[in-house]
Write a protein that binds this DNA or RNA. Structure first.
Lengths: 163, 163
DNA sequence: TCAGGTTAGTCCATAAAGTGGACTCAGTCC
DNA sequence: GGACTGAGTCCACTTTATGGACTAACCTGA
């Protein structure tokens, strides 16, 4: 299967992976949330090759996750900013941070401390149910295939039942 | 920078990326949460090469995200299961699903419907603050660098301030 | 007994992607 | 005019992934 074929699948994870599924995109995204905007800053901070950085940013731009905005004329220079779609990836990076902090800095102060501006507490956001407001984890959730309906092909990769 | 060097960084996102940063790991993980356990099932469902699948599973095993368990003797055969550490990646996959559903199935029924077993509602989990219980997004959170303390090297990649 | 099936892999030649370092372009500052 | 800045491009080279055939160890039915 080719790289870009992923974005043609009907699975949401597959389509997300088409943009984010490589060594650098998640780190890049994380740097965006930390306020980085410029080509050379990304390159210096992450230490990836300039070629790869160009390709990643282009891909993210194609998928409307980031946009280029002019920050200077003569010569015209662009910086990169997250779009609304890009900012909506925040829960992803948050999950990565929380997980990394738990398993790689167990008991220690994690490298980055996060504060909820609204209430002023230092926290790690948690996943919860919008209906009953309880915390959710893998075992309290169950996925099922969308009911078959005309026009929609069956899923290649639905849930699996065990006896 | 080399692949495995990522796991030596002190950034949680970098360390997580060392295990998850490629085209297949996220999809693989998602299949795990859907109940898939066997080598051939992963291979058939995802369509990745057997070699790559072997390498990915080995990497995840090395990082204690999955474990091999015997499910049959003579011949001894193993299947793969998530460890507790692996199950803790649920928020990550949930975030990916929610995001994909929002941007690639806008208004439509997403391919997989998720139910919160505890309360019985079909939902998409949301990220919230464990202190004030409000929903959080990128703009309501602010990261800061951990205070410098003896023995700890400064961060390579801390937050960036803008004027 | 023997052909065919099952399952989790390995092997290998080829193709695709990433790397590092030099180079470009347009303009500024001294 | 020479050095500097910042966002890239170019290219030879290395690292990874791919697809398809093949193996090992057993079971099943004829």
């Amino acid at each position: 299967m080719k790289w870009e074929d992923l974005s043609e699948q009907q699975c949401s994870v597959a389509r997300s992976s088409a943009v984010l599924g490589d060594r650098w995109s998640l780190l890049l995204l994380s740097d965006f949330f930390l306020g980085v905007r410029r080509f050379d800053d990304f390159q210096r901070r992450l230490g990836l090759s300039r070629t790869t950085l160009t390709n990643r940013l282009k891909l993210m731009e194609d998928h409307d996750v980031v946009k280029r905005v002019v920050y200077q004329h003569q010569p015209t220079r662009y910086e990169y900013r997250l779009t609304a779609k890009g900012r909506d990836l925040f829960p992803l990076i948050s999950a990565l941070l929380t997980w990394g902090d738990k398993y790689y800095f167990e008991g220690l102060t994690p490298p980055i401390i996060r504060r909820h501006q609204t209430c002023g507490h230092d926290i790690q956001p948690v996943l919860s149910c919008p209906e009953c407001h309880e915390a959710v984890d893998a075992r309290s959730m169950r996925g099922r295939e969308r009911p078959a309906s005309a026009g929609l092909p069956p899923l290649e990769r639905g849930p699996v039942k065990h006896s």
